[in-house]
């Protein structure tokens, strides 16, 4: 059975190359919106700092087979993200990429309600998620539990390795601990297998990629 949406996590220490890998995945995504809290994804053609402008953009994008935009938050991160998550949930059929996801969560045990709704019910609205984080131990358990694919860069911190072992298994944690600085390992949590390098960049190719997909319909 094919997935109705995909949740992809990219985890790695600063400078390990996780943003570049995330950008590679996003590059193949036909309908993309980036919550760019670090304002670093300038390859995305449409940039917004105002949610009303973003709303107009999403209206414009409704019937388009491809679009890409990024929102750079200016005020309260969690509040702006919740509004954006609500808009995306209503519109559906796109990939939402979130940089440094622990910045949105107060603790690994908490997800904002709108974010939680995207994680739990996003598949019914064809909303895929791509998130990045520096440390696995800081990511909300609710999010890691729903993640289908992990792209794991080198980790040495024992708590992070424990978190990886919890979610992906001891063997994967062991392999991650031995990775070189810019080395990575991609893990398919559903099929429980390591992905080939060529498969990683195509993770952004959602099966549902046309505006014909509306809520509840694949």
């Amino acid at each position: 059975m094919e997935l109705q949406n995909r949740i992809i996590g990219v985890v790695g220490r600063k400078g390990s190359g996780k943003s570049a890998k995330a950008r590679e995945i996003m590059g193949s995504c036909p309908r993309l919106l980036v919550f760019d809290s670090m304002a670093e994804h300038d390859f995305v053609p449409n940039t917004f700092t105002d949610l009303d402008e973003l709303d107009q953009f999403l209206a414009w994008a409704t019937l388009r087979p491809t679009f890409a935009g990024r929102f750079i938050p200016q005020g309260d991160l969690e509040q702006e993200f919740c509004e954006l998550a609500s808009m995306i949930y209503d519109q559906g059929n796109m990939m939402l990429a979130i940089e440094e996801v622990p910045m949105l969560t107060r603790s690994p045990a908490y997800l904002p309600p709108e974010f939680d709704r995207l994680v739990r019910l996003g598949r019914h609205h064809c909303v895929s998620l791509l998130w990045t984080a520096q440390r696995m131990a800081e990511v909300a358990r609710r999010l890691t539990a729903a993640t289908d694919y992990f792209v794991l860069f080198s980790h040495t911190e024992p708590r992070d390795l424990d978190a990886i072992a919890d979610r992906c298994g001891d063997e994967i944690a062991e392999q991650v601990s031995r990775l070189p600085l810019h080395g990575l390992l991609a893990w398919d949590a559903k099929d429980r297998r390591v992905l080939e390098p060529g498969e990683i960049s195509s993770l952004g190719l959602m099966r549902v990629a046309s505006p014909e997909c509306t809520h509840g319909t694949i």
Partner: peptide, 13 residues
Amino acid sequence: QLPQFKEWIPIGG
């Protein structure tokens, strides 16, 4: 009057 936005061509699209 709707703002015109830039197109997006994904890799392999």
